[in-house]
């Protein structure tokens, strides 16, 4: 390890995947004496939520690396530092990106097992990918989006509020209706809108992983329904309510780190994975 790095901050930055759709990745190397056989891929949320939670995600990765997990953070196609503009055709692209990240981490760390962690839409996509792949050891779902339709409605309201608050002249701003063409900086293709409307974690028919953690700030009905659904699918699910800042929607200049939430997720992952 380079002596100028604190534990968990020893990173490699790179692009991976096909050149026309290359994805930005940042690999957190654990201290050699602590390295585990299981790695963790952290799946980000999107757009404003992605920007606001960046610091918390970095801290999440650092803390996981400190207890021995090789960790890969990455940006989906058309988001962050990855290739592509805003107009992504559908959620299947981002699910494929998660799978590509899992393979990349396995190869890079010579690992046999991988856990997934995600916040908001990142949690929903991670859950869908895990159910599809059937090889994910553990799944940490932080404030998961359960219904894409409800999530879309939240984004529409946030976008509208933002324009009303910040724009000096909203007269000629694009209309925010039920099928908006853009939300919070994200261009919404018709295919993407349809995908959001169809996203529903309660319709999953396969258990996403043997061990699942659902964690949220305040108990919500949708998370409880998700818990019941996963229990029905015979997954080992732990549900926790841990108070902390809403880092995905707070002012980005606050850059808060939800210490207790991260600690709970890292402790849980340390228990379920080698």
């Amino acid at each position: 390890m380079n002596q100028s790095h604190l534990p968990g901050e020893d990173v490699e930055v790179f692009y991976f995947g096909p050149s026309e759709k290359s994805l930005f990745g940042i690999f957190h190397r654990p201290p050699p004496q602590t390295a585990r056989q299981t790695g963790v891929v952290l799946c980000p949320p999107i757009e404003q939520e992605y920007i606001r939670c960046h610091r918390a995600y970095r801290q999440w990765a650092i803390r996981l690396a400190r207890v021995g997990f090789p960790v890969l953070r990455f940006d989906y196609y058309g988001t962050g530092d990855s290739a592509g503009d805003d107009a992504v055709q559908g959620l299947s692209q981002w699910r494929a990106d998660i799978s590509a990240a899992v393979e990349e981490l396995k190869n890079r760390g010579r690992l046999s097992a991988v856990c997934l962690g995600g916040l908001r839409l990142g949690a929903a996509l991670a859950s869908q990918v895990a159910a599809e792949r059937r090889d994910i050891t553990g799944l940490a779902l932080w404030e998961p989006v359960v219904s894409g339709q409800e999530y879309l409605q939240e984004l529409i309201e946030w976008h509208q509020d933002k324009l009303w608050y910040f724009l000096s002249d909203v007269q000629n701003a694009p209309e925010t209706n039920d099928r908006p063409s853009e939300l919070l900086g994200l261009a919404l293709t018709p295919a993407m809108l349809d995908d959001f409307n169809q996203l529903n974690l309660l319709s999953t028919t396969q258990p996403p992983a043997d061990r699942i953690l659902i964690i949220e700030n305040n108990a919500t009905e949708s998370a409880k329904e998700l818990l019941a659904h996963f229990e029905k699918l015979e997954s080992g699910v732990l549900y926790k309510v841990v108070a902390g800042p809403r880092v995905w929607s707070d002012d980005p200049d606050k850059a808060l780190v939800p210490h207790e939430v991260l600690q709970a997720m890292v402790a849980w992952m340390s228990e379920v994975a080698e």
């Binding site: 920007i51 960046h54 610091r55 530092d81 980005p252 200049d253």
Partner: peptide, 15 residues
């Protein structure tokens, strides 16, 4: 820009 990472606000630095 402030504490926003290198992608910039609303990803404008990338563009």
């Amino acid at each position: 820009g402030g504490l926003i990472h290198r992608v910039g606000p609303s990803r404008v630095y990338v563009k």
